Simulated scan of single mutants.
Amino acid sequence: METTVEEKYQSPQIPNNLILTPEAQSFLLSSGKWASFLGILGFIFCGLFLLFALSVGTIMTKIAELQPGNPAAMMMAGMGGGLSVVYILLDLLYFFFALYLYQFAVKIKAAINFNDNFHLTAGLGKLKSFFKLWGIVTIVILALYAIGIICFIAFAASMASAMHG
């Protein structure tokens, strides 16, 4: 069967008459309050973690100074700068989680309090961004786990063959 130009797929029309019941509005408002709390707490922890990230190099150096003959302590002192960079990048990632949650909270509370569809749409967009980021990070972590497992199996196989050969 041939497809003609008139038979092209068209996406179904979504009606614009969605109505939020008072119960749904209450759920969204409560979610907004919790998201606000978690977002602010996230910002606070980002600040504390940033302070730790900036001082981890100094901490590692001081540990090495306390144990001058310990080669492991000397190696830790050398890794302090790299560890600071990794921690700052992780902190930046965590900041975006907190930011998206907080933006969702602000917009969703405004939408419910002022009966405003624009803020409702923007708030749900921030919630979508939060879950999209969460999904991407989860995929990356799962991929790292898979690579780690493959590397462990390859290492174990090479050790087993070295023992027998």
Score class of each variant (00 low, 15 high):
residue 15 P to V: 08
residue 74 M to F: 03
residue 151 C to V: 14
residue 64 A to G: 03
residue 46 C to Q: 06
residue 47 G to T: 02
residue 45 F to T: 09
residue 15 P to N: 13
residue 45 F to G: 01
residue 96 F to R: 08
residue 99 L to S: 02
residue 92 L to C: 10
residue 45 F to A: 04
residue 143 A to S: 09
residue 63 I to M: 10
residue 133 L to H: 03
residue 4 T to H: 10
residue 18 L to G: 02
residue 41 L to Y: 05
residue 77 A to T: 04
residue 123 G to H: 01
residue 136 I to Q: 05
residue 96 F to K: 10
residue 160 A to W: 12
residue 106 V to W: 05
residue 64 A to W: 11
residue 71 P to E: 12
residue 82 G to S: 07
residue 164 H to Y: 13
residue 130 F to M: 11
residue 141 I to Q: 03
residue 77 A to G: 03
residue 7 E to G: 10
residue 162 A to F: 11
residue 72 A to G: 00
residue 149 I to C: 00
residue 132 K to W: 11
residue 36 S to R: 08
residue 41 L to G: 08
residue 89 L to R: 01
residue 121 T to W: 06
residue 11 S to D: 13
residue 156 A to K: 02
residue 124 L to A: 05
residue 130 F to A: 07
residue 154 A to P: 00
residue 108 I to P: 07
residue 103 Q to M: 14
residue 105 A to E: 12
residue 22 P to H: 08
residue 68 P to V: 10
residue 4 T to I: 07
residue 7 E to Y: 07
residue 6 E to Q: 14
residue 67 Q to V: 02
residue 99 L to W: 10
residue 96 F to H: 10
residue 116 D to Y: 02
residue 41 L to F: 12
residue 14 I to K: 08
residue 29 L to S: 13
residue 159 M to H: 01
residue 128 K to N: 08
residue 94 Y to M: 14
residue 14 I to S: 05
residue 137 V to C: 11
residue 159 M to G: 01
residue 91 D to I: 14
residue 125 G to A: 15
residue 156 A to L: 04
residue 80 G to A: 06
residue 100 Y to L: 13
residue 107 K to W: 01
residue 114 F to W: 04
residue 121 T to V: 12
residue 56 V to S: 00
residue 112 I to H: 04
residue 57 G to W: 00
residue 124 L to G: 09
